[in-house]
Amino acid sequence: MPERTCPACQADDTEAVESVDRADLIRSYRQKGIDVSTYLPNSSLTLCRCKHCELGFFAPVCAGDGPFYEQLQTQEWYYQDDKPEYAHAAKLVREDCSLLEVGCGKGAFRAWLPESVRYTGLEFNDEAVQKARAAGLDVSKQPVEDHVAEDRRYDVVCSFQVLEHVEHPKQFFHACVEALKPGGTLMMVVPAQDSFLAIAPNSPLNMPPHHVTRWTDRALTNLAHSEGLRKADIWHEPVADFHKEWHATTLAYHALARFGVYRPRLIDNSTHYRLLGRIVRIPALREYLRRAALKMSPGLEVGHTVMLIAS
């Protein structure tokens, strides 16, 4: 039996949501040019949900390592310099403050900030660290837990699309909070489990070894409050232009599920799914189903990403 203690709040009150067959997940990743066979257990994976804090997590844990992310780096679509969350986060950063970005990649977020900001980045990928340093950025290959142990403190600590990848999110989040000066601001950005992403079928990148946890708004705010952060606001991005077709297709399937003609699954290779795909590829029918889905589930109008702003 996989360990099913919540990795965020340590509660044992968790439930199994759905199992994913190992072979199906390997096949889904291979369709994207990624081999995950060495990272997955020999058994199936189980998506679990914590009844206490609402975190979604996979058991057993199987997070990707450096070579796994090196595979992803070869994909043109993986790293983006222009993200809606960068624009929103930059508005919250004042002039002449100190800022730590955890998991900074090549430091793309720095370009969005005022020149007076004193920027520090942490990153594990050697190639990304080299690119950041070549651009004149102060970026180190160091875990945030080690960084904060050096008594380094900042006005702002931010992390974009990292928390969902780490095996021990509670420890990671705690270290990010510890890196704040008194009264500082934490910005934590993750894929939104309260968005269409939660119901998108055949999305292997939202599963191990890439994403090992799934964060609702409540799971994020609960984690912030557990660390003594009293103010915790949530921002959802609008649907990005490059996600609009995916969003519409996902909502179309959701409408079909609500109508009782489709049963959602994390990985679905069934003939029934493929036949329904012919329907959702018809623009007029897809738009009708999209609108129907939003009438039934208005919250699905938001985009892929959510940001926690806490202090």
Rank of each mutant, 00 (worst) to 15 (best):
E85M: 03
L186F: 05
A132L: 01
F242N: 12
R22L: 04
C176N: 12
M187K: 09
R27I: 13
C9V: 07
A292D: 05
E18K: 04
F242C: 08
H174Y: 10
C48G: 06
C50S: 02
A16M: 11
R110V: 14
E123R: 03
Y69N: 03
L92K: 01
V156G: 06
H272Q: 13
N206P: 05
P264V: 11
T271G: 06
D194V: 12
A232T: 13
S98Q: 01
D155V: 13
M296I: 15
P2Q: 02
A232L: 02
G56V: 10
V102R: 00
P143T: 07
N222D: 10
T74K: 14
A8M: 11
I234C: 07
T221M: 08
A89Y: 04
S28H: 15
C6P: 05
R274D: 09
F124M: 08
P298Q: 00
H254G: 10
V156D: 04
N222C: 14
G228Q: 13
G64C: 03
T5D: 08
R4C: 10
L197M: 15
Q142L: 13
Y288N: 06
W77I: 15
G56S: 06
H272S: 14
A284H: 01
D138Q: 10
D21R: 15
T271L: 13
A198V: 15
E85I: 13
V189G: 00
S297Q: 09
G303Q: 00
A16F: 13
E227K: 13
A63I: 07
A257W: 08
V102K: 06
A128R: 08
C48Q: 08
E101S: 06
Q73N: 13
V156N: 05
L40D: 12
E167G: 09
D126K: 10
A63D: 09
A198C: 09
D13V: 12
K231N: 14
G260L: 00
M187E: 02
T38R: 14
G299K: 00
L100Y: 01
C97Q: 11
H254K: 06
E70L: 15
D233S: 11
Y273N: 09
F58M: 03
G121M: 07
P60W: 11
F242P: 07
V139T: 05
L72M: 12
T185C: 06
A248D: 07
V162G: 00
H210E: 01
E115R: 14
Q142Y: 13
L251P: 10
D217L: 01
G105C: 02
D138G: 07
T5K: 06
